[in-house]
Design a protein around this nucleic acid. Structure first.
Lengths: 148, 148
DNA sequence: GCTTGATGGTTTAATAAAGCAACCACATTC
DNA sequence: GAATGTGGTTGCTTTATTAAACCATCAAGC
């Protein structure tokens, strides 16, 4: 399960996957978006072993995706909430979700929909666009070095 | 590494992660987008063990993300290319990439940029929008059941 | 203030997966 | 037809995940 260098990866995708690319982290983040905050909530929702959850939470905190704070309900327990960095993962989750919805589900099988609260309408599928607004596909892209 | 039910997951995110959520699959897909097609190319680029590359490729093929075909250079070897389903993962990769770029890299550390081929300009950051065009954040979303 | 039960973990032992190295069949090159 | 490169597989070791037991702290009842 070990990819080579933890930190010296130059590819942003690889580096991202080192932080949230394992089996559970993104599901933890998903649950965090759904309002879950406490250890037990995550554990119950995900059904993973407690020690693993413990490790994942620590890792996510150490990477600044989650932060621990005093419980909002006044109890002495702590809770895990998304940081700004973590909240920026929303678009990643939505991308995964939309891909799953369109590519992995049969007609009519889908029973939960992500909607805009205000209009009640499903959100718009994500699109990749150029600065000037054209929709881009795989063949319209290139990677270039910045150190030229 | 085992999450409970492989197939009966109802959450699109979880189901997606079952297909491409392991340590290597998305990097394989990334390389496929970059034009890599042959076993050896992936192996050299990623530096992963051959047996697990073999497993990952099989899995991706079995899920319809990649397909095997005769080599384009006329040799008797086979090659792995993205299917339509696989190509739709572009947006996921871009989302991961953009998150990594903004949240995991220091100023000036980034040395490769994803640009629109035509204009040479970096692509636009992904945005989550409602059907009528408003930009949405985490708090603007809700999930609703379709079976009501 | 002592017991009971839930919460939030850690430790330990078993198992499953990833990594490594050797090997092998087949194709191509010389 | 010997050598080399490609595309794997097999078996063994190492590492990660899991499940279960254990434990400290907190909250509630009495």
């Amino acid at each position: 399960m070990k990819r080579k260098s933890l930190d010296r990866e130059k590819c942003p995708i690889a580096r991202t996957l080192d932080v949230i690319g394992d089996w559970w982290s993104l599901l933890i983040v998903r649950d965090a978006f759904l309002g879950k905050r406490r250890f037990g909530e995550f554990q119950k929702s995900l059904g993973l072993a407690k020690n693993i959850l413990s490790r994942r939470l620590r890792k996510l905190v150490s990477h600044g995706v989650l932060e621990v704070g005093a419980a909002s309900d006044g109890s002495a327990y702590q809770e895990y909430v998304l940081t700004e960095k973590g909240r920026r993962l929303l678009i990643v989750l939505v991308a995964l979700r939309q891909w799953g919805e369109t590519c992995l589900f049969e007609e009519g099988e889908l029973d939960l929909l992500l909607v805009d609260q205000k209009s009640g309408q499903p959100v718009k599928p994500l699109e990749l666009r150029s600065k000037d607004g054209r929709i881009l596909g795989p063949d319209d892209l290139r990677t270039v070095g910045t150190s030229d």
